[in-house]
């Protein structure tokens, strides 16, 4: 039984279908990456998995249980957390309040102090910035806060939508390292959405390529990297 199993999923907006018949899975303790260019439908797919934009068709199972039509606000208690594209921070609230909100659901709330220490150990800068408004942080710090806030909910499945977007290379490095670190220490499943193909594949256990709303490739990262189509379309060689 996989941690997350998506089967023949169609998703879109109203009558418009953007993502067609997509299947993917994430096993416990592994990092799966979902690759695809701008407008491929990555965000649409992810948001449909967590119920922000419920799927038009197909099934979504989490630890064997059908979770479709549960509503977004039930995901945290199930153990699924999304770091949305653009981070979705509560900009006018303090760093600490953002982190507290990450552990709003009852189960993670019981572990709040412990999770907070863990997040501070991952990103020491957040401790220094804890009274500052989230909106006043630099881009890199905001991404750390977004990841930290997600970790506060003590998830079993962490989904990240383009966490490296708009970050300087050094910060991209930090973000990727922290994801690997979290996976190793917490033994959780990670679904990482990225356009930063080479770096994403280097940390991945499994890869998927989405193009125009269809899953065109899937497989081991080294196979994807060696794939002629991937090379031409994404690696520029």
């Amino acid at each position: 039984m996989s941690l997350l199993e998506v089967e023949s999923l169609c998703a879109g907006y109203g009558d418009l279908t953007i993502v067609w018949d997509v299947s993917l899975k994430v096993e416990e303790g592994e990092i799966a990456v979902l690759l695809g260019g701008n407008g491929a439908g990555k965000t649409t797919l992810i948001e449909s998995i967590v119920g922000i934009n419920p799927p038009q068709k197909g099934s979504i199972r989490f630890k064997g249980e059908e979770i479709q039509r549960r509503g977004v606000h039930r995901m945290a208690e199930l153990g699924i957390t999304l770091v949305p594209q653009g981070r979705g921070l509560f900009g006018s609230m303090s760093v600490l309040e953002n982190l507290y909100l990450g552990s709003y659901a009852p189960i993670p709330r019981a572990k709040r102090a412990e999770s907070l220490e863990y997040v501070y150990s991952l990103f020491p800068i957040l401790r220094e910035r804890k009274t500052q408004k989230a909106g006043s942080l630099s881009g890199g710090e905001q991404q750390m806060l977004a990841i930290g806030r997600a970790i506060m909910s003590d998830p079993q499945l962490l989904i990240l939508d383009e966490p490296s977007l708009g970050l300087a290379p050094r910060l991209v490095e930090t973000v990727f390292r922290s994801i690997v670190e979290i996976r190793r220490q917490k033994k959780i499943g990670v679904l990482l959405v990225e356009q930063n193909l080479r770096q994403a594949l280097s940390v991945a256990d499994r890869g998927y390529v989405l193009e125009s709303g269809r899953m065109v490739l899937e497989g081991r990262p080294e196979d994807l990297e060696a794939n002629e189509h991937v090379k031409r379309a994404y690696l520029g060689c």
């Binding site: 922000i52 977004v72 606000h73 995901m75 945290a76 979705g88 709003y104």
Partner: peptide, 12 residues
């Protein structure tokens, strides 16, 4: 501040 993020935190 952010309805979508709030829901993701488990806020109904």
């Amino acid at each position: 501040v952010n309805r979508k993020s709030a829901a993701l935190m488990g806020i109904n």
